[in-house]
Amino acid sequence: MSLRSSRRRDRRMMGRAHTLARLNQGLTGVNPSVGCIILDRDGHIVGAGVTGLGGRPHAEEVALDEAGARAHGGTAYVTLEPCRSRSQGNKSCSVKLMEAGIARVVCAIEDPHPVANGGIRALRDAGIQVQIGLGQRESQRLYRKFFESIL
């Protein structure tokens, strides 16, 4: 696959993730509505998720559950940084992505929330390739109120 077609696929998949995130906008309590798309190592969509009503489960959990073992070696497209830790003590989304064997994460924007921030660093420390910024403007619009509520 050429670099050009890879970039085109990245933009298309992040667009799908944003479409998912908008589905539950305003319905996730204090949590933001996040969208996540999982591709297998061959570039096929094997999982898709959006933050659940009331804020649980997180989008990455939904997408990884759908993808199962097919996520191993694949790519995750996420509209907001996967959380570093969870307020309720469950495994964080960054840990779940690591455990699933995800090879690459494309993330639109970092999460300034003190509990969530650091997920990108954790993924990189685990040897996962992380790209930040694709779809950043859309995520800034989508999460403006959420960011204002925590800053």
Rank of each mutant, 00 (worst) to 15 (best):
residue 32 P to N: 01
residue 88 Q to P: 08
residue 51 T to D: 09
residue 5 S to V: 12
residue 91 K to E: 13
residue 115 V to Y: 14
residue 7 R to D: 11
residue 22 R to C: 11
residue 59 A to W: 06
residue 46 V to R: 11
residue 46 V to L: 13
residue 82 P to E: 02
residue 38 I to W: 01
residue 90 N to Q: 14
residue 126 A to K: 05
residue 42 D to L: 01
residue 54 G to M: 07
residue 79 T to S: 13
residue 42 D to P: 01
residue 105 V to T: 06
residue 112 P to H: 04
residue 5 S to G: 10
residue 34 V to N: 10
residue 108 A to E: 09
residue 73 G to W: 00
residue 27 L to V: 02
residue 111 D to H: 03
residue 119 G to D: 08
residue 21 A to C: 07
residue 74 G to E: 07
residue 98 M to I: 15
residue 102 I to N: 02
residue 51 T to K: 12
residue 85 S to H: 02
residue 33 S to N: 08
residue 123 L to V: 04
residue 108 A to C: 11
residue 12 R to M: 15
residue 29 G to P: 00
residue 123 L to K: 05
residue 40 D to I: 02
residue 68 G to Q: 08
residue 108 A to F: 08
residue 123 L to T: 02
residue 20 L to V: 05
residue 123 L to N: 07
residue 14 M to K: 09
residue 73 G to S: 06
residue 117 N to I: 00
residue 43 G to N: 04
residue 14 M to I: 07
residue 120 I to W: 05
residue 109 I to N: 10
residue 108 A to W: 04
residue 118 G to K: 07
residue 59 A to S: 14
residue 37 I to N: 03
residue 93 C to K: 02
residue 116 A to S: 12
residue 124 R to M: 15
residue 18 H to G: 14
residue 36 C to D: 05
residue 60 E to Q: 11
residue 87 S to N: 14
residue 84 R to Q: 04
residue 25 Q to T: 12
residue 34 V to P: 06
residue 33 S to H: 06
residue 41 R to Q: 15
residue 69 A to T: 09
residue 116 A to F: 05
residue 67 A to S: 06
residue 28 T to Q: 10
residue 117 N to K: 03
residue 124 R to A: 12
residue 53 L to E: 14
residue 74 G to V: 04
residue 118 G to V: 05
residue 53 L to I: 15
residue 69 A to G: 06
residue 63 A to M: 09
residue 48 A to R: 14
